[in-house]
Simulated assay, not measured.
Amino acid sequence: MNKHDLRVIKTKKNIHNVLLDLLKKKSLSQISITELCNLAEISRGTFYFHYQEIGDILDEIFEKTMQDLELWYSDPFKNGFNINQKNLAPGMIKIFNHVKRNEAFYRIILSSDIFIKYYYLLYENIMKLHRDFGSGQFEQNKYTLSYSANGIIGLILEWHKEDFNSTEEEMNNRLYEILKFNDL
């Protein structure tokens, strides 16, 4: 299988979209492969060619979304930005732009039915981003990294609880004010 084959890309995108639509209505455990295949208009053979079970699809969507998160998160650091600098501005913070762009995904993984597994995966990804792009401000201290990662997730959770009613800019400003207050 060539992952760059346009047919594979279109098939997987279709399967991803169908699963995300189904997850808006029911839990992962309530979705059958038959139902997913019927709605995606694919055969079971096609499904099993790409996946072993439905959870594999959500894992793949998660991985793709985390790659996108890394692009948004790392954007300010591309030009040598250091979070310790006093020139931090809300417009430099991009993480909430990513969340808003992937709002349907975050609505699903932050639901109580799916939450805990993906909470820990999201936590690990944000910790990794802090280590990789944090310019040493966390001094690789696992407790400081944990505090920071959970703070970001906490902001995303509150935004989710308010049904993503705030804009990305408002969320960026909230994080900016927290960072400024803590003098990071």
Rank of each mutant, 00 (worst) to 15 (best):
K3N: 07
H4G: 11
H4E: 03
D5N: 07
L6M: 06
K10A: 03
K12N: 11
K12I: 14
K13R: 10
I15H: 01
N17Y: 04
V18D: 03
L19F: 05
L19H: 00
L19S: 00
D21W: 07
K24F: 11
K25H: 02
L28S: 03
I33W: 03
I33L: 10
E35F: 10
E35W: 01
L36Y: 01
L36H: 01
N38G: 12
S43W: 06
R44A: 12
G45C: 13
T46Q: 13
G55N: 11
G55C: 11
L58A: 09
I61E: 03
E63N: 11
E63F: 15
K64E: 10
M66S: 13
M66T: 11
Q67T: 06
D68I: 10
L71R: 12
S74N: 03
P76G: 03
N79Q: 05
F81S: 03
N84V: 12
K86I: 12
P90E: 06
I93F: 04
K94L: 08
K94I: 08
N97D: 09
V99N: 04
K100P: 02
R101Q: 13
N102S: 05
E103V: 06
E103K: 04
A104D: 06
F105L: 14
Y106C: 08
I108G: 08
I109W: 00
D113K: 14
I114Q: 02
F115V: 07
Y118A: 11
Y119P: 00
E124P: 05
N125D: 02
I126A: 07
I126P: 04
S135G: 12
Q137S: 08
Q137A: 05
Q137Y: 06
F138Q: 07
E139Q: 08
Y147G: 13
S148A: 13
A149Q: 08
I153V: 02
W159R: 09
D163T: 10
D163P: 13
N165V: 09
N165R: 09
T167L: 07
T167A: 04
E170M: 04
E170F: 06
M171T: 02
N172H: 04
N172W: 06
N173M: 15
R174W: 07
R174I: 14
L179M: 10
F181C: 15
F181Y: 09
L184W: 06
